[in-house]
Design a protein around this nucleic acid. Structure first.
Length: 457
RNA sequence: GUGAAUGUAGCUCAGUUGGUUAGAGCACUGGAUUGUGGUUCCAGGGGUCGUGGGUUCAAGUCCCAUCUUUCACCCCA
């Protein structure tokens, strides 16, 4: 017999773990709803044509592809006939793939359902995504994203609203965060001003690493990527700017004056900061010129959130994309969205033990099983308690009390109720508080009011 | 895709220069206690030593391959 196992980078979750995860999902979902976002779901798999070329070359490599059904080999050339081109071959035997994020399927959804959608469309979506990455710290092959996007509106109010959502979610989860903000138009402006507009991707990828590897190595990498020496020396002042937020904005105005796109980006971020002063936000926001974000489709604001007290990558990210639906045949529709990385948030909360107490238990009271007659009575008593909103279970088998007590302990059930012959006659039952060990003899009404004090949800 | 570490009971781990029948704690089962758990005491079950090959009289231990997990790079939530 083989040992059972699950695929690399995937995980099972026990009931105790799921209670913690549901707490995170419920918190995020609650905030999304509060701001008027509506839920949608899309299939786990998409046509590969929907997914390919949306995430850059690296992203394509990380797509999980699904083998066609049936005798697909008979319809295709054998791999030995085109050696070294397994990528091309894989497209001959695979036409579906697992979704890589929720934004691209959402864009596809919007285009496909454009006639029934009421714009501006505010949707949230909480579903798993898959990446064929090599797993490591905070990185899984299957993980949940919690997305909120507004599509069909250019207004910066949407960016502000998404920042409010970020603030509210992490405040509720009690995670201290720093929000990093940048704008792709500013990055485009920089590459224009230094005379290398086509090298925008190379430039952003390289300067994204500046904190990690330092300016010298970034310059080295840019040389490798074919950036000219005059362009590099023109770029250098941008790499070592120490100004913050508003000062940085005014400094950039003098440097990017020649780039229309760049100035537009500055104007956007300036307005965003101005709007933020109106909402009484305590968010710790940094305008970070080195924030690039990999996903190719971003065109305006880009947002990334880091946990201050835990060593893990970003726990939330997003930005504005002006033409993602254009690829699917619906041009000139701008969208902006954020994505919470639920699994990383889960790791942060586990690391810092930030869960509230009430979530470790589902059942509030266990009715012990004393035998055939007693369990019939317990059945109706349990129903009374449940109607009063108390999460109740009956131990299904009339086994030793020790075992039933042990079950209550292991499940973290705070109360057990003894329903024996004497208790039934007196209509008064022994309620035991499992934490203190105290017992009291109470009638059903008294039990309900006693339990009501422990309502936590 | 590149580089490194790791794998022994359900879980966390010990296992000497290669040498008889591979151990502990926790968990589980039974009992001390037939209606009182979380503490205690006694007893018990549970192992293809990740997998496959090789070296050797002899491999958990050494060598090779492969898989898993973990960490870093690339990239990313």
């Amino acid at each position: 017999m083989q040992k059972p196992s699950i695929p690399k980078g995937t995980r099972d979750f026990t009931p105790a773990e799921m209670l913690r995860r549901e707490y995170i999902f419920n918190t995020i979902r609650g905030v999304f709803k509060k701001y008027g976002y509506s839920p949608i779901e899309t299939p786990a798999m998409e046509n590969l044509s929907t997914l390919l070329d949306k995430y850059g070359e690296e992203g394509d490599k990380l797509l999980f592809k699904i083998l066609n059904s049936g005798d697909f080999l008979s319809k295709t050339s054998l791999p030995s006939e085109n050696p070294g081109d397994s990528n091309k071959f894989s497209l001959e035997i695979s036409e579906k793939g697992l979704r890589y994020d929720l934004t691209v399927p959402f864009a596809r959804f919007v285009v496909q359902n454009r006639n029934s959608i009421n714009f501006p469309f505010k949707r949230y979506q909480i579903q798993p995504v898959w990446r064929a990455d090599r797993p490591q710290k905070g990185r899984y092959r299957e993980f949940y994203q919690c997305d909120a996007d507004v599509i069909g509106s250019n207004s910066l109010l949407n960016e502000v609203e998404l920042l409010q959502i970020i603030e509210e979610v992490f405040e509720a989860l009690r995670v201290n965060i720093t929000v990093k903000l940048n704008n792709r138009k500013i990055l485009a402006g920089i590459s224009e001003v230094i005379g290398e507009p086509e090298k925008l991707t190379d430039i952003t990828v390289a300067i994204d690493k500046i904190e990690k590897i330092g300016p010298e190595k970034v310059i080295g990498e840019l040389k490798e990527r074919g950036l000219s020496d005059p362009a590099i020396s023109a770029l250098e002042p941008f790499l070592c700017m120490k100004e913050q937020n508003l000062e940085l904005i005014s400094r950039l105005k003098t440097l990017l004056g020649d780039s229309e796109t760049g100035m537009k980006g500055i104007e956007e971020i300036e307005n965003l900061f101005r709007l933020l002063t109106k909402i009484d936000s305590a968010l710790n926001i940094e305008f970070d010129l080195t924030l690039a974000r990999g996903l190719n489709y971003y065109t305006g604001a880009i947002i990334e959130v880091k946990a201050n007290d835990a060593e893990i990558g970003s726990i939330c990210g997003g930005g504005r994309y002006d033409n993602l639906t254009g690829i699917f045949g619906l041009p000139d529709v701008s969208g902006v969205g954020i994505s919470f990385g639920a699994d990383r948030i889960y790791d942060v909360l586990n690391q810092l033990e930030l869960y509230p107490e009430g979530i470790v238990t589902a059942t509030q009271i266990l009715i012990l099983n004393f035998g055939e007659k007693e369990q019939e009575y317990a059945l109706s008593l349990a129903q009374q308690l449940r109607r009063a909103g108390i999460r109740t279970e009956i131990f299904p088998d009339s086994v030793k009390i020790k075992k039933q007590m042990n079950y209550a302990n292991n499940q973290n059930i705070p109360f057990v109720l003894m329903v024996g012959e004497q208790e039934i006659i007196n209509n008064s039952f022994t309620l035991k508080d499992m934490a203190s060990g105290e017992q009291a003899s109470l009638n059903p009404g008294e039990i309900i009011s006693r339990l009501a004090e422990y309502q936590t949800d």
